[in-house]
Design a protein around this nucleic acid. Structure first.
Lengths: 244, 244
DNA sequence: AAGTGGTCTAGACCACCAT
DNA sequence: TGGTGGTCTAGACCACTTT
C-alpha cells in the first residue's frame, strides 16, 4: 500500500518521488506539525539517493510551504500561514498595521443539526449526517467587527459543545483536543451591503459595505473539516496584493 | 558603475550575486521582455562559475517570475502575470470562468493637468509636474462594469492623447509606443457602496456594493508609471485565494 | 566536537528542440 | 547532429547550532 521505496526506472524524477513520499508521511500524520524530520544524510541513506537529490526535494517542499529549514538545527514540518487571509486584516490591519490582540468571540448559538445538501457537499458528508452549527460575533477591543457562522462535522468534533469556546481561537482547539490540525484553507471574498440583522449584531445604524468571507479549512489529506461564513464590516477593509 | 563581475570574497553567495546581475540587466533594459538570454554554459564561462551555480541562480529567477525556461530552446525574460489581479476577475470571472473577450473602453476625459500632492507622491513626481488624467468607462458585452481614473506622467507618455485609445488595452501601448513595459504592479482593494454619479455611469438604479481597486503599475527599476483607481460593480465579484 | 543545513564544483547522462 | 535545459552524483568546504 505504502510507496515507501523509490522507483529507479525513471518513470518520474527521483526528487519528485521523494517529495510525494514526504507529503504522504505528513498526510497520514506519522510526521506532524512542528516536528523535526530526519536530516539530509539520513534520508539519502534511507532511500539510496545522493544528498543533492534529497536537497532538491526538500527545496521543493520548502517552496510549497510544507517544510521549513534552519541551518544547524534541522528540517521541520510547517504550520499554515494565514497572513494572506482576508480575515487576517481585522486582526492586524484595522489598528494601523501593528499586530494587535487576539479577537474576542461571543457565542450566540451552538447546536447539532442535519448537514443539508450544501454543507454536506462542502464538508464531504451525507446530507443526513449531523453537524455542529455555531454562530458567533467577533470583536476587537470590545467592538464587534464580524458575524460568523461555522459548520463542523459532528463525528469529528463530538463534544466540542462541552469546551469553553468563548474568546478562544478555534484552530488550536481543533488541533490539540480533536487531533485535527488545519493545514490549508480556501477563501472566497464577496462584497455586499449590510442587512437589518447584521447591522444590529454589529452595532451599525445605516447601510454599510460588508465583506463576506467564506473559508473551507482542510486537514491532512485535503480533508475538509470546517466551513465558515463571515460577514465583516467593510468600512476600513483594504486588501493588498502584488502582481509579478 | 556596472557590477559586471562576481566577487569571490564570499561576502554574498555567488548565485545570489548572479541573480542581482541578471536582474540589473533586465532593469536597464539591455535584456528585454520575451528575449532569449545566454545559455547556462555561456554564462558559466562568462562569469567563471560552475554550471550548477548558474542553474541555481536561474532557478531563483524562474521562481520569482523574472525568467521562464524551455527545455531544448533556452531561457527567456518573462512578461508579468495579471491572473491574480482584482480587475482580472471582470475579464474572466463574470461570465462563468471561461476567458471571455477583451473589455471595451469609452474615454470620457483625457486632459493634461498638474499632478498635485497625492499623485505626485505615488508617481514619484513633483506636485507641479504635468500629468495626463484619463477617465473611462469599461464594458463587457456593451454593459458597463467599471469607472476608471488613470494618471500618467506627461513627459513619459507625451503624445498619448493623439493615440486611438478607445477599446484598446493600455499596457501594450505603453510598451510598444512609449518603450515603457509594465513589469509588476501593486493593487489595493476596498469595498464601498455606490454613489449617484457612479450609479449613472454604470447604469445602476439603487445602492449596490462597489469594489474600489487602486493599482500602481511599475516598469523596470521599480519606476511607477501609472496610477489607476477603478470603481467596479461588486454584484458578482468573488475573489479567491488559497492559504498554505 | 559533532551534526545540521547552505554553497559550490565538475562531471555524467538524459529528454527535448532546432537544423 | 549539436545545443538546450533537466536530473543526478559524489564529493568539498563553510556557517551555524547544540552538546
Amino acid at each position: 500500500m505504502d510507496n515507501i521505496v523509490i522507483d529507479f526506472k525513471k518513470e518520474k524524477p527521483l526528487y519528485l518521488q521523494l517529495v510525494e513520499i514526504i507529503k504522504h508521511r505528513v498526510v497520514e500524520n506519522s510526521w506532524h506539525q512542528g516536528m523535526k524530520i530526519p536530516s539530509e544524510n539520513e534520508m539519502a541513506k534511507e532511500f539510496g539517493l545522493s544528498v543533492g537529490t534529497v536537497k532538491k526535494a526538500l527545496g521543493v517542499l520548502v517552496q510549497e510551504g510544507v517544510l521549513f529549514r534552519r541551518q544547524g538545527q534541522g528540517t521541520f514540518i510547517s504550520t499554515p500561514d494565514f497572513s494572506k487571509s482576508f480575515l487576517r486584516f481585522f486582526r492586524f490591519g484595522m489598528t494601523g498595521g501593528k499586530p494587535s490582540e487576539v479577537p474576542g468571540s461571543r457565542i450566540l448559538k451552538l447546536k447539532v443539526v442535519k448537514a443539508g445538501k450544501k454543507i454536506a457537499d462542502v464538508l464531504n458528508l451525507a446530507p443526513d449526517d449531523k453537524i455542529y452549527h455555531m454562530k458567533r460575533v467577533r470583536t476587537l477591543q470590545n467592538t464587534p467587527f464580524a458575524v460568523e457562522e461555522l459548520y463542523l462535522s459532528y463525528t469529528r468534533f463530538k463534544g466540542i459543545d462541552q469546551v469553553a469556546l468563548e474568546d478562544q481561537l478555534l484552530y488550536p482547539i481543533y488541533s490539540e483536543q480533536f487531533a485535527t490540525p488545519v493545514v490549508w484553507a480556501d477563501e472566497f471574498m464577496q462584497p455586499d451591503i449590510s442587512d437589518q440583522e447584521t447591522n444590529e449584531l454589529l452595532g451599525v445604524d445605516k447601510i454599510t459595505p460588508v465583506i463576506c468571507v467564506e473559508r473551507i479549512a482542510y486537514s491532512y489529506g485535503d480533508l475538509p473539516v470546517e466551513y465558515r461564513q463571515s460577514a465583516c464590516i467593510g468600512d476600513n477593509f483594504k486588501y493588498h496584493i502584488v502582481i509579478r
